[in-house]
Simulated scan of single mutants.
Amino acid sequence: MTRLDQPLKIKNVHIRNRLVLPPITTGYGSAEGLVTEDILHFYTERSRQVGLTIVEATAVQSNGCIVPCSLGLWNDSQIFGMATLAKAIKAQGALAVVQLNHAGPKCSPRENEKQRLSPSGIAFRTDVEAIVMDAQDIAQLIDDFSKAAVRAAKAGFDGVEIHGAHLYLLSQFLSPLTNKRNDRYGGDAKGRATLALEIVRSVRKNLEPEYPIFFRINAEEKIEGGQTFEDALVIAKLLAREGVDVFDVSLITQGGWEEIDNKRVLVGSSALPKDQPSGANLSFTTVFKKEIKLPVIGVGKLGIGQAAANAVKNQNIDMVAIGRQMICDPKTAKKMLDKKDADIILCDECLKCFATIGKSVPMACKVNKNLPF
């Protein structure tokens, strides 16, 4: 039986236990995508006991930031700060991985920048115009993901995670809800996976063969017409052949179309609703593990009770991500490992963390008023 405190090996890297700090958009970076003292405080405090820290969505292009103060790896000037961050995380004993992303039309707009890249021009915000990517845009994106991955390796990160979930740009290509293209980047699940496959292929080509590549994927989109679990498995098998080593399995829990200011926009959330039990996504993750035969990360209110321990013990989940719970109590991982769950300061699922980021301001928490600590 696997325990939370048991180590795990991926490629040539060793992870001391099964707990993961997942990528959490904080908005604590600078306007230039640089590491700040707040970023260093946030990750240092939360890397002390977890086995793996995945740094928040880091933009591969300056126009791909989720929030105005997202981290970036779109140019070499950002390597130094990211190296400081990687070193700080690893000094706590955790493996350091950075998530690479382009938010597409889910980006917060900057002054005089109201257009954002998308597969098919579907809007997610009233203040951002989604424009359809052409062949040149796609080629540039592939190159920029690859260059960002190389910069991450130079900065000392132990791995990279490519963000293909949560309806950001790559996720939009993977989903039939948002990908209506009639070229080779659209069509069935295999066609919609083409961009992600080409990005992974390019990243793998430019990194050492043993350098770990993670991929975050929606197991399902609980929106009418969204990506199905069957499609996710097709896509994951293709990605595994191109060199993905670990799947970080998430989902879109709810969403749909809304009319806002006379504009039709698509909205979706990755947070499990308050009435959903912990581990509601783990059945998908277990099947991923069985079908893809690669390590998986499970997510979904796993900082509650024995949910994390049971996931690795009974459901064959390799690693478990503790996100919102680690925002409000950065010592959650230590308390779980010490079997002092009763001492954990519980997240009350108010989603203030999501709400503040949605307003393009630094993340705040109702419970932990001492952020970024």
Rank of each mutant, 00 (worst) to 15 (best):
K359I: 03
D348K: 05
I260N: 07
I345L: 11
A153C: 12
R324F: 04
Q92P: 03
P68T: 04
I292N: 05
H14Y: 14
D188E: 10
R116Y: 15
V244W: 00
L337F: 01
I327V: 15
M336F: 04
Q306W: 11
K106V: 14
P22V: 03
G279Q: 09
T44W: 03
V267Y: 13
Y43S: 04
C350S: 15
I10A: 07
K290T: 14
S360N: 15
E111T: 14
I79G: 07
P105K: 08
T2D: 07
K335S: 04
G303D: 09
P7N: 08
A342T: 10
F284I: 01
G159Y: 07
K180Y: 10
A88S: 15
D343R: 04
A59E: 12
C350A: 15
A240N: 12
I260W: 00
A189G: 05
R204W: 09
L233W: 04
R18N: 05
P372G: 05
G298T: 01
Q61L: 12
K90P: 05
R46I: 05
V246N: 00
I317R: 01
V246S: 01
A86K: 02
K154M: 11
L95R: 05
I142T: 11
S146D: 08
A232W: 04
G104A: 11
I223N: 03
N368P: 02
G72V: 06
I304V: 13
N179H: 06
K340W: 02
E258S: 10
K90Y: 02
D338M: 14
G358M: 08
L34D: 12
K106H: 05
V312Y: 01
L174G: 00
S146P: 09
S62D: 09
C353K: 01
P176E: 03
R151S: 06
P209S: 12
A91E: 15
P273W: 00
